[in-house]
């Protein structure tokens, strides 16, 4: 009886993790206008990947980064990919989670999410920059940096609310 109950719990937690991960591309598609600065929404993938990597370690973090990057690339226009940045961020946050548990407070989560979103933005900007060299740079840069700053700010603000609870859930699941 106890074994079957434990198996049920494991199945439930696995389903919950998968469902929460699938929610990331769904939210990226829905793009709720209420949670946006200058029309730019948060980086939902960063909000999910950060707690997952902190709780799971570098290997799981990188793997999740790859999977989510593939999913997000499949629902976006051609031109730039998020995969490299997400793999690197998953690895980095995974190592941080292994080394120290001091990162598990609200302020650190907010800061890490801000930096993560900024890194994803910079990687996208570099790819757009190299692909569209014929575009007037001045205008292109101002738009890019406005997008990077808006997205980083809203991601950093939402992280203590969303990533914190996800981190608690992922840590409880592992323990």
């Amino acid at each position: 009886m106890g074994t079957s109950s434990k198996a049920l719990t494991v199945r439930y937690t696995k389903s919950a993790v998968i469902a929460s991960a699938i929610l990331v591309p769904c939210l990226a598609l829905i793009n709720p206008r209420l949670l946006a600065i200058n029309g730019v929404g948060p980086s939902w993938v960063v909000l999910w990947l950060l707690p997952w990597s902190l709780a799971g370690g570098p290997l799981l973090g990188s793997f999740a980064g790859l999977c989510l990057g593939l999913l997000l690339d499949s629902i976006s226009l051609y031109g730039a990919t998020q995969i490299p940045a997400l793999i690197v961020l998953g690895f980095w946050w995974g190592r941080l989670g292994k080394v120290s548990s001091a990162t598990h407070n609200n302020l650190s989560l907010g800061l890490l999410a801000y930096m993560g979103s900024f890194c994803v933005g910079i990687s996208l900007w570099l790819q757009f920059y190299l692909r569209h060299l014929q575009i007037s740079f001045e205008i292109f840069h101002s738009w890019s940096f406005q997008t990077i700053l808006s997205q980083s700010l809203i991601t950093g603000l939402l992280s203590p609310i969303i990533s914190f609870w996800l981190l608690l859930y992922f840590k409880n699941r592992r323990s």
Binding site: I30, A36, N38, S76
Partner: peptide, 13 residues
């Protein structure tokens, strides 16, 4: 059914 008119990808689904 979905839209992003600002940000990195400006697209409609």
């Amino acid at each position: 059914i979905a839209r992003k008119s600002n940000g990195w990808w400006q697209q409609l689904e």
